[in-house]
Computed example of a mutant assay.
Amino acid sequence: MSVNLIAHTQLSDGFYDSLDIYNEFIEYEGNQFDRWRATDAQAVALSAIRTCYSANKPSEIVATEGERYFGNTASDGEGGTEADRLFRHITRSGHTSTLEHLSFTFAVEGVSRALLAQLTRHRVGFSYSVQSQRYVRMGSSDKSGGFDYVVPPSIREKEPGAMAVYKASMRALQQDYDTLRELSVPPEDARMALPNAAATNILMTVNLRALLDFYAKRKGGRGSQWEIAELAERLRKEVTKVEPWLEPYFDAV
């Protein structure tokens, strides 16, 4: 399994340009983001939350309220800035629709079709583009070189006999697929012979609220199958590399 974050919430150049009209936002060099150490996602989260409660326009909130939230230590004694305190308060109060404005796009590669079936049960807040077994031909002589497959640890870690049986099954299914194709069965029908273990690739975009809900349900120790539990941890790792302030949110679910 390979999981890579390929895109996430970023402020537009136009938004940065609009901040120039607020003198309090500009420093002698650079801008307040350098001093605040705030990420673009935090700026979006602040804008979303304060839009609900502030007389200021959404486009004005970072410039007019940013110092108050990003420039001061959290008053609840739990660490971070006043922005962190606000984010904690909103999350605990259940106003998590404001987290839907933060999104992440992942390349998820080399996972099984069994995992795909579980993953796509999560629909609200998720978007998927999946490698097609109809249009990507999986024959031994095709560009793919045949289908790849995922091996469960329960098979890999057993005595060699279990792995031998599993590999033999995969070879037989590949041969069956190839034979069906040789008999002029179209790929979209020949794929019916491919197993749940067959590997696929997914481009997935998810908002933060949906991702935290997914993690709460699929992380290890919640009865999830090993592959989707591993995916949950890898998604968390990718997100917190670029948005380390979100680490406690994953811990809390």
Rank of each mutant, 00 (worst) to 15 (best):
D148Q: 07
D148S: 15
Y149R: 04
V150D: 02
V150S: 02
V150H: 05
P153V: 03
P153Y: 08
P153M: 07
S154V: 15
I155D: 01
R156P: 03
E157R: 01
K158V: 00
K158C: 05
K158Y: 01
E159V: 13
E159H: 12
P160G: 14
P160W: 08
G161C: 13
G161Q: 07
V165P: 05
Y166D: 11
K167Q: 15
A168W: 07
A168I: 05
M170L: 08
A172D: 15
L173S: 12
L173I: 15
L173K: 13
Q174W: 04
Q175N: 12
D176M: 14
D176W: 12
D176N: 13
Y177E: 10
D178R: 00
T179C: 06
L180Y: 02
L180F: 03
R181A: 02
S184I: 05
V185S: 01
V185A: 03
P186D: 00
P187R: 03
P187M: 03
E188T: 13
A190L: 05
A190F: 00
A190G: 07
M192Y: 15
M192K: 09
A193H: 04
A197T: 13
A198D: 06
A198Q: 08
A198K: 03
A198T: 09
A199M: 01
A199S: 15
T200K: 06
T200C: 04
T200R: 04
N201F: 04
I202F: 01
T205N: 07
V206M: 11
L208N: 08
L208V: 09
R209Y: 09
A210L: 12
Y215E: 14
Y215V: 06
A216E: 04
A216T: 00
K217E: 10
R218K: 13
R218E: 10
K219N: 05
K219H: 08
G220L: 09
R222L: 09
G223D: 11
S224V: 13
S224Q: 08
Q225R: 12
Q225Y: 15
W226Q: 14
